[in-house]
Simulated scan of single mutants.
Amino acid sequence: MSDALFELVATYGVWLLAAACFLSCLLVPIPSSLLMLAGGAFVAAGDLEFVTVFASAWLAAVAGDQTGYAIGRGGAPLLDRLAERRPNRADLIARARALVARRGGLGVFFSTWLVAPLGPYVNFVAGASGLGWLRFTLWDAAGEAIWAGGYIGLGYGFADHLVLVADFAANASGFLVAAAVALGLGWLLRARLRKARARALST
Rank of each mutant, 00 (worst) to 15 (best):
residue 1 M to V: 14
residue 163 V to T: 10
residue 31 P to H: 01
residue 144 E to R: 13
residue 137 T to F: 08
residue 162 L to W: 07
residue 72 G to K: 01
residue 176 L to V: 06
residue 48 L to V: 14
residue 155 G to M: 01
residue 50 F to D: 00
residue 93 I to V: 13
residue 128 A to T: 07
residue 140 D to L: 15
residue 17 L to N: 01
residue 169 A to H: 07
residue 107 G to V: 09
residue 32 S to T: 13
residue 140 D to S: 14
residue 194 R to V: 11
residue 200 A to M: 11
residue 84 E to F: 08
residue 175 F to N: 05
residue 15 W to N: 01
residue 99 L to G: 02
residue 185 L to I: 13
residue 144 E to S: 14
residue 56 S to W: 02
residue 62 V to F: 09
residue 38 A to Y: 13
residue 36 M to I: 07
residue 122 V to H: 06
residue 76 A to F: 00
residue 158 F to A: 07
residue 55 A to S: 11
residue 201 L to F: 15
residue 29 P to T: 06
residue 12 Y to N: 00
residue 28 V to T: 08
residue 160 D to M: 12
residue 92 L to Y: 00
residue 147 W to E: 04
residue 19 A to M: 14
residue 167 D to M: 09
residue 60 A to S: 05
residue 137 T to C: 05
residue 194 R to M: 11
residue 124 F to E: 01
residue 200 A to G: 00
residue 98 A to W: 05
residue 130 G to S: 06
residue 164 L to A: 13
residue 186 G to D: 02
residue 164 L to F: 12
residue 112 T to R: 15
residue 120 P to R: 03
residue 83 A to Y: 13
residue 155 G to K: 08
residue 20 A to W: 00
residue 190 R to M: 10
residue 161 H to N: 12
residue 172 A to C: 05
residue 3 D to G: 08
residue 151 Y to N: 04
residue 16 L to R: 07
residue 50 F to I: 14
residue 144 E to K: 15
residue 185 L to V: 13
residue 105 G to T: 10
residue 88 N to R: 15
residue 83 A to Q: 04
residue 32 S to C: 11
residue 183 L to W: 08
residue 87 P to S: 08
residue 107 G to C: 12
residue 188 L to Q: 13
residue 170 A to T: 09
residue 77 P to L: 06
residue 113 W to S: 01
residue 129 S to E: 12
residue 134 L to D: 05
residue 109 F to K: 03
residue 72 G to M: 04
residue 73 R to P: 05
residue 94 A to D: 06
residue 124 F to V: 12
residue 70 A to D: 06
residue 191 A to V: 06
residue 113 W to C: 09
residue 95 R to W: 13
residue 99 L to I: 06
residue 39 G to Q: 12
residue 13 G to T: 09
residue 139 W to H: 10
residue 130 G to W: 09
residue 29 P to M: 02
residue 149 G to C: 03
residue 66 Q to P: 01
residue 87 P to V: 15
residue 152 I to T: 00
residue 132 G to R: 09
residue 152 I to R: 02
residue 170 A to D: 05
residue 61 A to Y: 02
residue 56 S to H: 08
residue 138 L to G: 04
residue 45 A to P: 04
residue 186 G to A: 13
residue 153 G to W: 01
residue 191 A to H: 10
residue 111 S to T: 08
residue 2 S to E: 15
residue 167 D to Y: 10
residue 126 A to W: 09
residue 90 A to L: 05
residue 178 A to T: 12
residue 149 G to A: 07
residue 88 N to Y: 15
residue 162 L to N: 05
residue 173 S to A: 12
residue 174 G to C: 00
residue 183 L to Q: 04
residue 139 W to K: 03
residue 105 G to W: 04
residue 41 A to L: 01
residue 11 T to A: 11
residue 69 Y to V: 11
residue 182 A to V: 13
residue 79 L to C: 05
residue 128 A to F: 13
residue 12 Y to V: 00
residue 183 L to P: 02
residue 101 A to L: 10
residue 80 D to Q: 15
residue 150 G to M: 00
residue 31 P to K: 00
residue 179 A to N: 09
residue 80 D to T: 14
residue 22 F to I: 03
residue 99 L to F: 08
residue 133 W to R: 11
residue 82 L to M: 15
residue 124 F to C: 00
residue 200 A to W: 14
residue 69 Y to A: 03
residue 13 G to W: 04
